[in-house]
Amino acid sequence: MLVTWKYRRRNTIIQRLDPRTRLVFFVFVILALTIPDIWDLRIILPLFAVSLTLFLLSRIEWKDIRRILPYMFILVFFIVGLNGLLSGRGGPSSVTNLPSPVVFEVPIKIPFTDIGWDIPITVSKMWFAITQITRMFTMAMLVIPIPYTMDPNIYGTAFKRMGASDKVSFTMDLAFRFLPTFARDFTITMDAQRARGYELEKLKGGLVGRLQRLAPLIIPVVMQSTVTGEEVIDAMDLRAFGTKPRTWLRDNLKYAGRDYVLLGLGVAIFILCCVLKWGFGIGGYFVPEFFLNLFV
């Protein structure tokens, strides 16, 4: 098992952006959708288009994301499905409880019992699901490319330049340093225990027993890491870590024209959403006529 960063140098506009720009833009989009509580698909769709454009510009190959797409869909179905099942009071999805024509009903039954009920799927719930999916993808698509397109060596500096302390920023760098090491330690430990006849595939016993049997895998790696820590502390102290404000070598981060454009766009989106919602009352959830008409 090898931990490989998915990062590769690609000659794209996205990679020429300052890493801070991307993080800040992402934060603006989240704020724009969540603070004024935007649930109007007419506003979400244009934002979705912006996200999609940025996503496509990062030119991630299909084979890179192929594997995680199923997870994404499971997650989306889970959330949307749960909403159907559990909708109650509070939260934005309470709108789905508004009286609305029922399209069909899904029977639910708890296994091995006679308890069951029918869940009415209303027009309102269906439209809400569509909105919710679009809204989630609008945010997710800004994030998914990050591991593929941002050099791991730059995270620490990016944190530093966004105002974190030397120590916190370096923690980030150091974590990147250790990640592949521990992944390898974990593999070696797996192998060493298998060579002693341990078979993870055949974990027996009850829940407690099975969890306890993970000890031969977890303990060696964790304990070795605590010992490693002591030596790393020595090594860092001996090289004067934390005694003075640090120089950060790769801090030649500078905002360029394109960065200002994207940051400006982020601010504009945020302000526009706030103004629309609070100034004009536009942006809340509603089911459009045409969608209702499809079913009535």
Binding site: A175, R177, V221, G229
Partner: peptide, 25 residues
């Protein structure tokens, strides 16, 4: 909050990341 916290914070993070990811597999 000194070198010690930085180092163990990073080590804890790396371990937590690796183990969380391993549980996917």
């Amino acid at each position: 909050f000194g070198t010690r916290q930085v180092v163990y914070g990073a080590i804890g993070a790396a371990l937590y990341g690796v183990f969380s990811w391993a549980t996917n597999i």
